[in-house]
Design a protein around this nucleic acid. Structure first.
Length: 882
RNA sequence: GGGCGAUUAGCUCAGCGGUAGAGCGUCUCGUUUACACCGAGAAUGUCGGGGGUUCGAUCCCCUCAUCGCCCA
């Protein structure tokens, strides 16, 4: 016998272990079934499960479990990402606790430390994924730094280099002065900073007493100024173009140039140009042949290219000093408060510096072209479709991708330098040595490029590198391209776009047919969850309190397309209650001997109630399947919830109690079998969203079954299961019972009182329904009898209309006449309002002329029904007297 | 500045051309042996404002307001 309530903690671990051990998650490369493939976005190896993970992996697991049950050969490819900077930071932080830095160890030893850390702590996220019930093919788990994946990375790098799509260049990069590495544009976050706009006077050379005013938010960069730009058409400065300015504090003569970058409308209209430390200035410098003087070192301290007094100063100390000194020289015109956007490193949190360095770049614009076309032609489709615009916007304006990082943890760039700086890009050191020997005519000492690749470089290869590429494995042939990629919009640029580029380039086909972009999970007020705000809801805590299934079902139910999820814990509680409800329904089945009957077929049933529930179930299961197919997880969850609670528990189980308690053995047997069968189907339909409780019930309700639910087949029913007549009949019963309950409640009839119901003017059909279902009507409406009304309507009665009939509750002595009059009046008013509205429509010639016939017909029907009901209630009201 | 999205019951959200829905919350009643993590019933909405298209608009179009996000 089942316990009284479901205790998730007691069964989740067991089922997970059994699933995994039995190979239920494994794809079958040799299967004849059509593959269904999802590449798991590899979480960072440093990660721990947050609500965003919980959503994305729940959605993926729902898809995978569902398609597995649909008998697709499902491959959910798992793995983790080495997360270069993030992981290196974690390990360095640990070393810092012992007062050490990575430099105390040296590169190789430090990398050894990182691997050690990974072996000890890198499994957290995958353990937590297991708690969430995720069912990827763990045997195929990969890590972006695996040998195989590293080989793929090297091959891609070398090939792209040979094709001219990877190149080395000296340009301004986003330099992170804390982490000492370049980062890509995407890793830069613009933060609004309240600062100042300092206006400086630069003396014009050769014109004593004349100044040009320039404004800057970054005074320290003035030491690297190599020009002042004005708009070529700006009348104020036209005469100055070609002249020079004597740069204060430095003494350098720098030219005044005409360039349209200077906006006459902002500030003074003149701008100082620091080509080595500003992206816009860099372009101006190129156009106007200005020198680029690098004045910063890797810590963003001033270097030897500035006057001695400033050398070694931090950028912010230098700023203070410069302002003070210019003020002393009376060259500070004014200071305006100014709020502006300052780029910050997303990992380090410090302001990044544009810095001139040698870096490796990917020619993203070239690779983007086929990737754009693939979406334009529908080879890859975004769901919801609007995200395609975001993708296009980014891809059509894509900039060269800086892929080198000055850190140690990651894929080291496969380039080796000879003594004269010539480099050899090869997959292995041996190949590089051979190439160098050929080039120099003898063996020479080679040094490998110390940089590593951007983490996203290896992630971009994930859809094929995990399947064995560059080897032509059976997996690669079978599972690429994948079916759907599930992810959040925040990494469309980081990852989706890059997989598209790499996939198309190396596999000549898109990496996935569909990209499902889900929402971001926020707190219940719509704030992004963050540790600093203290509004984080920890999925593991939720799981601990309400169970995994409750969390998964909540996330499914809230995953409506195109909207963020504001997660409120009471929603989870509500769906935990749903799990308990299901549990108790199963318990009821068990107590009533409703056990699965081998060979049961839901056709040819004798009991209307059974034909009805079977049809409702078929409808609900179809809705769930269609919703999952359309990535409408909220609709899938709601359809399953509504059927289980609203149809099966609230009505069917109550309807059948008289049969199960009765003496018609054949009806009893049929009903038991049907009840068991429907519950069984519910378990199937809920399983993708609530895997644990359904598996547990599946096992407990019929321990003899050979297979587990995870491996069962998704139910698909023929149209013959839906019986419209049965549905109409049961709906009639439902309406009758609801009506009586409502009258009782409104008239304050004590629940325990068994009263009589009379049916007035009921036709033969209704009377037949009444006879069929008398037992359950008596029970559910708490009546002593239900009979056709003979003779006149009793004086003190409460009445309601149902189709052609009137329901009459004779409540002599009990009924409060005023209350009943008020109730009837309210009903009548409601109906009158409706009739009036419909009449207005029907008397509108345009409506009658232009609306479709069936709409007009429907309006007429509704009007007639309402009018009939109103007349009957009117009579009832008159009978009560004024 | 450019783009996207949102605004529906007290709260969180579905719906998106023809009877406004759910969950939670609220109120009333209820120990009917599956379930009080429950059951029955009830109340609650000029579907952000203003225009337009249409026989008909919560739904389509325009505009304004407010809020949020992305990109400069």
């Amino acid at each position: 016998m089942l316990e009284k309530t479901y205790r998730p903690a007691e069964v989740e671990e067991k089922h997970y272990r059994l699933w995994e051990e039995s190979g239920a998650f494994a794809a079958d490369t040799r299967s004849n079934a059509t593959p269904y493939t999802i590449m798991m976005p590899p979480p960072n190896v440093t990660g721990s499960l947050h609500m965003g993970h919980a959503l994305t992996f729940t959605v993926q697991d729902v898809l995978v479990r569902y398609n597995r049950m649909r008998r697709r050969d499902a491959l959910w490819q798992p793995g983790t990402d080495h997360a270069g900077i993030a992981t290196q930071m974690v390990v360095e932080r640990n070393l810092a606790k012992e007062g050490k830095t990575r430099h105390d160890f040296g590169r190789d030893a430090f990398i050894g430390k990182v691997w050690e850390w990974k072996a000890e702590s890198g499994g957290t996220i995958t353990r937590q994924l297991r708690r969430l019930g995720a069912s990827p093919d763990w045997a195929k788990e990969r890590f972006t730094m695996d040998d195989g994946l590293s080989r793929a990375v090297a091959k891609v790098f070398v090939e792209l280099h040979r094709q001219g799509l990877i190149y080395k260049d000296k340009r301004l990069v986003n330099w992170d002065p804390k982490l000492h590495t370049a980062i890509s544009d995407l890793e830069v976050e613009q933060k609004e900073i309240k600062g100042n706009l300092w206006h400086f006077r630069y003396p014009i050379d050769g014109e004593e007493g004349r100044f040009i005013v320039v404004a800057t938010t970054r005074p320290e960069t003035m030491l690297g100024d190599t020009g002042v730009a004005v708009h070529p058409e700006d009348e104020r400065y036209k005469d100055l173009i070609g002249k020079h300015v004597r740069l204060p504090l430095v003494g350098r003569l720098i030219p005044i140039v005409g360039d349209e970058y200077a906006d006459p409308a902002t500030g003074s209209g003149a701008v100082k140009i620091t080509p080595a430390h500003d992206f816009n200035d860099f372009e101006v410098g190129k156009r106007c042949n200005l020198e680029a003087i690098n004045i910063l070192d890797r810590d963003a301290r001033l270097n030897d290219n500035v006057p001695e007094a400033y050398q070694g100063l931090d950028r912010y100390e230098a700023r203070k000093k410069i302002i003070a000194e210019l003020e002393a020289l009376e060259l500070l015109e004014k200071i305006e408060p100014h709020t502006h956007m300052v780029p910050h490193g997303d990992r380090s949190g410090v302001a990044i510096e544009p810095w001139l360095t040698d870096q490796w770049y990917v020619d993203a614009a070239t690779l983007a072209k086929p990737a754009i076309e693939a979406v334009e032609t529908g080879k890859t489709v975004f769901v919801p479709k609007q995200w395609e615009n975001t993708y296009y916007e980014w891809m059509r304006n894509i900039q060269p991708w800086c892929i080198s990082r000055q850190i140690w943890w990651g894929h080291q760039i496969p380039a080796w330098y000879g003594p004269d700086g010539t480099f050899f890009v090869e997959e292995t050191e041996a190949a590089a040595r051979a190439a160098a020997a050929k080039h120099y005519g003898s063996d020479v000492e080679l040094t490998r490029d110390p940089d590593v690749l951007d983490t996203w470089f290896s992630s971009a290869l994930w859809p094929f590198s995990t399947l064995g590429w560059p080897d032509e494995t059976p997996e690669l042939a079978r599972y690429y391209p994948t079916d759907v990629l599930v992810t959040g919009f925040d990494i469309i640029f980081f990852w989706v776009a890059r997989m598209m580029m790499m996939g198309l380039h190396f596999m000549k086909d898109v990496p996935f047919r569909t990209v499902y972009i889900h929402a971001l999970v926020r707190d219940e007020k719509g704030q992004k969850m963050s540790k600093s705000k203290g509004n984080v809801i920890d999925p593991l805590e939720i799981i601990g309190e309400y169970g995994t299934d409750a969390l998964r079902f909540t996330l499914s139910a809230m995953a409506a397309q195109g909207r963020d999820i504001k997660l409120a814990v009471n929603r989870v509680e509500g769906y935990r209650n749903f799990a308990t409800k299901l549990w108790n329904a199963a318990r009821y089945c068990q107590m009533n001997g409703c056990e699965p009957v081998a060979g049961y077929r839901p056709v040819g049933l004798t009991q209307t109630v059974n034909r009805w529930i079977v049809g409702e179930l078929a409808d609900a299961a179809r809705k769930v399947a269609e919703a999952i197919d359309a990535y409408k997880f909220n609709e899938a969850a709601n359809a399953a919830y509504q059927f289980t609670w609203g149809n099966f528990c609230d009505w069917y189980m109550e309807f059948t109690k008289p049969i199960l308690a009765g003496s018609d053995e054949a009806a009893k047997a049929e009903t038991r079998a049907t009840t068991a069968w429907v519950l069984d189907q519910i378990l199937h339909v809920l399983h993708p969203m609530m895997p644990y409780i359904t598996e547990e019930l599946w096992e407990q309700l019929s321990p003899a079954r050979a297979n587990r639910l995870i491996s069962a087949e998704w139910p698909v029913y023929g149209a013959e299961l839906v019986d419209a007549a049965a549905r109409d009949e049961m709906n009639w019963v439902v309406r009758l019972i609801t009506s009586v309950r409502s009258m009782r409640s409104e008239m304050n009839v004590p629940p325990a009182a068994q009263i009589e119901l009379k049916l007035k003017d009921a036709n033969a059909g209704s009377l037949a329904r009444l006879d069929t279902h008398r037992d359950l009507i008596l029970r559910m409406a708490r009546l002593s009898s239900v009979e056709p009304l003979v003779g006149p309507t009793p004086k003190s009665a409460v009445q309601a209309v149902q189709d052609e009939a009137t329901l009459v509750l004779p409540l002599e002595g009990i009924v409060d006449l005023d209350k009943e009059r008020a109730r009837l009046t309210k009903e009548i008013d409601k109906l009158s309002g409706e009739i009036k509205k419909i009449d207005a429509k029907l008397s509108n010639e345009q409506f009658v002329a232009k609306a479709p016939d069936e709409v007009i017909e429907e309006q007429r029907d509704r009007r007639d029904t309402a009018a009939q009901a109103r007349d009957k209630l009117q009579k009832a009201l008159e009978m009560l007297g004024a």
